[in-house]
């Protein structure tokens, strides 16, 4: 005996996972990070490098051969040399003349303790831009 019975199994319905809440959350996170993130372009200038420490032979040679230029920085941030205030352009020309004469010129910067950091960085910037490769920042320390 053969009976024509067909059993149709229902196709299981696929659970629908809605993507909309995920997109909402992602957009909220995106806006949050866009608003809160601050892109800072930070650079650095070396204040103390391992190469600053001269080997004894170099130190002795530097003492005998090198020429030094002392630039002081006043409390108002203006650089002066041998008691004379220098503008930025004047300082650049002084450095250019001295560096042309002696490319190994040692530039020593002696800032007043009350000077602002920006004034020291500006002078260091000028000295580096002028082409000086030997630069040191020194400070006076009270004897105890």
């Amino acid at each position: 005996m053969y009976s024509d019975i067909s059993l149709n199994r229902r196709k299981p319905t696929r659970p629908l996972i809605s993507l909309v809440p995920m997109i909402d959350i992602m957009l909220i996170l995106l806006v949050f990070f866009m608003v809160t993130s601050t892109y800072l372009n930070l650079d650095m200038i070396p204040a103390l490098a391992q190469s600053d420490r001269p080997v004894p032979s170099q130190a002795a040679e530097a003492e005998t051969v090198s020429e030094t230029l002392l630039i002081r920085i006043g409390t108002d941030g203006s650089p002066f040399h041998q008691g004379k205030d220098f503008t930025r352009d004047e300082l650049i020309s002084l450095l250019t003349v001295r560096l042309n004469r002696n490319p190994a010129l040692h530039v020593i910067i002696l800032p007043t303790g009350g000077a602002r950091l920006q004034s020291l960085v500006t002078v260091m910037d000028i000295v580096t831009s002028a082409g000086a490769v030997n630069m040191r920042v020194v400070r006076l320390e009270a004897r105890q």
């Binding site: 930070l42 000077a115 950091l117």
Partner: peptide, 26 residues
Amino acid sequence: AVLRDILPRIAQFEAMGARDVVLVVT
């Protein structure tokens, strides 16, 4: 910031044996 707050710190770090100290600039 005034340099009397910063330079002594750099000197102190050097005395401690620090080899690389950098100033952050923009």
